[in-house]
Amino acid sequence: MELNSTWKWIVVAILFILALIFPLFADEFMVSILMQAYLWAFLAMSWDVIGGYGGQFSLGHAAFIALGAYTSTILLESYGVSPWIGMWAAGLVAGAAGALVGFASLRLRGPFFALGTIAFAELVKLLLLYFKDITGGPLGILITKSGPEYMLFESQAHYYYLMFALMVAGVLFLKWFEASRFGIGLVAIREDEEAAEGVGINVYRTKVIGAAISAFLTGIGGTIYAQWIHFIRPDIIVKLEYSTQIAAIDVVGGAGTPYGGLIGALILVPLSLYLNAIFGGMIAGLSLILYGVVLLVVVVMVPGGIYGLVRRKWLSRKRGGK
């Protein structure tokens, strides 16, 4: 056991160092792929707070990406506020919207909640289009500033490190979160709401705050995303595809675990980007079909996701070895 955990740390350290020096030897395309995997991993981990740990299947998280992206970008372009600060405001705005969704989750279960979140995201998109004085409407907003003080970088390698840090922060957060009082409370509610009340957990408050935390993190992810693509528009951010992909990545990797989002993203994002690159994006839909097939296969064949499978195998070997 002692040896086992030493090995585990050595492996983690090696992977960590490899990830850090990756931009030094890999070409720009590979760096960009891994970078995007980190970003999606972070978004999937953010979703995991409510979708995995909370057991509330949201299909509206693209709305929180958009709220975060718009908040920090408007602050940046209209008021000159650096996104290093603006991202916290982005988190708060998205988090407030998340609290509203949390209130809805008190009444809506399962597919009804999923439907509600889809409608919520559509509503956010329409409102972003409607208030064009602030949001630029269908034209969107172009980020015109530059320089690292505005979280804008020359090379993809810089973004790589930014997203890497984001992803690591996400994993560490979930590690801490799942062992925290609040995390245990949220999982208890997922497992049995009445029993959770019976041990003193305030179900209403926990659900609302859980949704707000998830949205807060997703909003921050939205800021980072906007800083990377330099341009936001309602129809390219609030896409049901994005909401679906976030959920699919997490479910495939293993929902309700600190590593599920990362594992899912490391598998699905590079695969779909490669497919796109090979076929030059000429065949629309080819990369997306992958998400559908993998999601279907994993849910039917490997409930608990890939991390769940690995962990079960590992546990049974450990038990067998005793």
Partner: peptide
Amino acid sequence: KPFGRLTVLENVMSA
């Protein structure tokens, strides 16, 4: 009504 996917210890700790 156990919290099925929490361990026994976590179940009781939550209380």
